[in-house]
Design a protein around this nucleic acid. Sequence first.
RNA 1: GGUCUCGUGGCCGAGAGGUUAGGCAAGGCUCUGCAAAAGCUUGUACAGCGGUUCGAAUCCGCUCGAGACCUCCA
Length: 492
Amino acid sequence: MSNLTLYDSLTGELRPFEPIHAPNVGMYVCGPTVYSDVHLGNTRTFLSFDLLFRYLQHLGYKVRYVRNITDAGHLESDSDVGEDKIAKKARLEQLEPMEIVQRYTVGFRAVMQAYNALPPSIEPTATGHIVEQIEMIKKLISDGYAYEANGSVYFSIGTYLQKYPYGELSGRSIEDLESGTRDLDGQQDKRHPLDFALWKKASPEHIMRWPSPWSEGFPGWHLECSAMSTKYLGEEFDIHGGGMDLKFPHHECEIAQNKGATGHGGARYWLHANMLTLNGKRMAKSTGNTLDPRDLLTGESPHLSKAYTPGAVRFFIHQAHYRSVLDFSDSALQAAEKGYYRLLASMEALAQRPAQGPDRGTWNVAEWNAQCSDAMNQDLNSPVLIAHLFDAAKTIAADQKDPSTLGQTGASELLAAMNTWMFDVLGLAPEHQSGSGKYQKALDAAMSVVLDVRRKARESKDWSTSDALRDALAQGGIVVQDGPEGSSFRVE
RNA sequence: GGUCUCGUGGCCGAGAGGUUAGGCAAGGCUCUGCAAAAGCUUGUACAGCGGUUCGAAUCCGCUCGAGACCUCCA
């Protein structure tokens, strides 16, 4: 069905993508913990997987894309101690935990929509799947992979190691992991330092709690993804994605839970999106080194000189490969924006192309299109795809001088292909300079009067008048451009 | 401290044993009353030092530098 190859973090190599049940594809991506606003780094990860989702669909696959909302169980520390992140935020803001969840879930979805990310097929929540998680724990206990201690249940790495390796995904040996563990409060119930919580008994002040056979408590953070991916995608499915930072311990634990409970490690391809850095450092809420994706659209941030469109931001993100660290800066974003607008202008010119020249041109659209596919098939190499798009822009310019370059059919084929790559696959939104209908019409009418006055001034070589008009319009953000066929304008 | 990744021209970023990545910026040219825009065009870069090889930015070793994970974060 395709020649797509994907880099699998588990094997550490590029592998041809072969779905278990083509044309159906099951894809699970770890979603946000909704205890605060997402930052641009989170956004990059989700846009990377949006690109994959879009490309798989472009290839004709029927994708079931599951992306969870973590609304309980994610503690402040991965060592199974500390307060639940959401409960803590709720306490600090004197709100119900579910108010916190609602607020940041809505905010997250708004950001995703603003950046033109397609909604997942299913967006399940941890709290909506307590039953499934309890069932999975029961299975793990009955098979010996988990044990109860003082109302909590832990995954037994010791038992697991008798049958399966642990640490494959993150490339760690058991010795390394053991030497890296520390003695912490709340760990005394564990038989092995690497054991992790499947169920935690709630302390009296812990407000997010559910009944279970072991105690009134809450599920461990790693469990929800195993339970929900199994429920919606099966014991074996195609792709599991997430941010690079989730490799360990989250995804490592997920694999262990899945193998223990089902005998299968869940996904056949593990994909990890790399970090977005700001000032060379990882973007993180805890250090304040963050950028809110909404601020990019308003320009309100000390890191920004101006506002950007969502398309420009997406273009910037996809101009780097998803597995590379991408460093954010205002100037880098500006550079991407200029290129992006140049591409859009080129496509606009192609759409306006007069019907001239031969039917078929000298430039081979099909071959170019195949190169675009090749790039994306190579582990979603969007930067190379974009380079090809710029090649097309060059060709469009050449065709304007010599319409035998593209030819009429070639031109319409190229436009269709560019629309597909730009809008369907890269998820950029068509952005027109024009505003909404009636204002655009009024502006056009007014400008045609002004430009006519200026044209007469220029014809009589009254440069002071023509330049004054041009300067005055520039003050209002209207840039006048004089070309061989008269003057035109654009709004900045 | 342990594990791992990375270091590409002014900037951002692909690639990856031998052939131009691309974008932005910069220089030149075309167009032009001037400007802007647009188009064309130029630039031989791969941290340093060794090694393997006919040939390395690409493989190996060391050094320096940066980052990630191990400890909350996509």
